[in-house]
């Protein structure tokens, strides 16, 4: 992307920031006036969960950058271990993340 001007990434990031704040600001404006358990919210929540799950699966199965050089089996193994440790440790986020990241680091060390 050599032709894009220097400020272009900042413009993209600002668009992202605006796209994020819109919902927060709208939430303040609408609070007390709409039902956060309604169907429209449920649909939006489903889309948000699907989108994040799609992003996560893609980053693990078909990563970009240097992670793409690691074997798929290593990434899947580290992912499975992370899930197992997370639940076995009583839904402990730190243990789960630590196990997955540690496993991938060790598997790719040699």
């Amino acid at each position: 992307m050599a032709e894009t001007p220097d400020w272009w990434p900042f413009a993209v990031i600002l668009v992202g920031a605006a796209a994020t704040y819109v919902w927060r600001g709208l939430g303040v404006a609408l609070s007390g006036r709409i039902d956060p358990d309604g169907r429209a919210f449920e649909w939006a929540a489903c889309i948000a969960y699907a989108l994040v799950a799609a992003l996560v699966a893609r980053m693990i199965v078909l990563p970009t950058g240097p992670l793409a050089e690691t074997p798929l089996a290593d990434r899947l193994g580290a992912t499975a271990l992370s899930l197992a440790v997370y639940f076995l440790a009583g839904r402990n986020m730190l243990w789960g993340v630590g196990a997955g990241v540690g496993a991938l680091t060790l598997l790719t060390w040699y």
């Binding site: 919902w23 939430g27 007390g32 948000a48």
Partner: peptide, 17 residues
Amino acid sequence: VTLTSVRLLPMAVTLMP
């Protein structure tokens, strides 16, 4: 990003009151 951030709306709606 807009679709990823929708989840913030119900959070703001329930937190503000």
